[in-house]
Design a protein around this nucleic acid. Structure first.
Lengths: 147, 147
DNA sequence: CGGACTGGTTTTATAATGCAACCACACAAG
DNA sequence: CTTGTGTGGTTGCATTATAAAACCAGTCCG
């Protein structure tokens, strides 16, 4: 079998996440879903990916419980793709990707948008890793232990 | 040209991040690098990926300034791959992926490890998105604005 | 009813990935 | 110095994933 190796059985939770959303398009679909995109054709227009690929990706995300389909909000006979609770749980990952780009991108002037809090229109804070007692942690201050 | 579409020119910082690290292996390589893996053969053993793929991925990560090579720590004539500051900046993304899996995975009992703070051996806190004034924010409490 | 839109499927072409074989250099033992 | 093993790749080939375009049935809009 010479197939893209699946990470499903791996004990590492990072690998398990990537197995679900680690492909080229899934996180962009989810990003658009957070932005309010719900319809097949809207995803396709926004992302510019081939329709067959979008079909496969949406099906995979639905199968994994990240998206779900529901009757279209506009009353038509079509269906909408909307985020489940599990899908909405991906928000910190999107924020972390955004903040990394904002901090380290070679061409930050090309970044077009900023994430702000809706009520004050102020930029959000950087995600901060903290210990149980609230003190900030650097990567070196952490370690992995068996569960 | 029928080639995997690049996200490089996109104005969305999420797309820009994914362009750098959004492939099947890069984040796993980086995860191992945080865990202390430094040598080509060690990455290959740990990840079980083909050597030609590893060659390409490491080169890409070095080109993008996420890894760098330096003389081997053990004094041999070989070279080590180590994270740059930009690479270490990816830690929140790894943590977010880990926490998503911990919270939503279908089979949490298969998750083998826990991230703890080194001094107290207590699990780290969940990454929390906050407004500028420190109040926690849900996804719906945020919005995107032009820069 | 006619035409456009929606949400796909199918077909075909190219690129990415995986595997195995190969290879030059480093290094250690004898 | 010679033989054997480990390192860090490269090359060739097979298979899979992705992309573009054509096609199609059902839906909605006037």
């Amino acid at each position: 079998m010479v197939k893209r190796t699946s990470l499903e059985g791996d004990g590492c939770p990072i690998a398990r996440s990537l197995d679900a959303i680690g492909d080229w398009w899934s996180l962009l679909i989810i990003r658009d879903a957070f932005f309010g995109v719900r319809r097949f054709s809207a995803f396709q227009r926004s992302l510019g990916l081939a329709k067959n690929i979008l079909t496969v990706r949406l099906r995979s995300l639905v199968d994994r419980g990240i998206l779900t389909t529901e009757p279209a909000a506009d009353g038509s006979a079509y269906r909408d793709y909307v985020l489940t609770a599990k899908g909405r749980g991906l928000f910190p990952i999107l924020v972390a990707l955004r903040q990394w780009s904002e901090e380290f991108d070679e061409h930050p002037e090309e970044i077009a948008t900023m994430l702000v809090d809706r009520s004050h229109h102020q930029p959000v804070r950087k995600l901060l890793l903290c210990a149980n007692d609230g003190t900030p942690l650097r990567p070196e201050d952490t370690t992995l232990v068996p569960r």
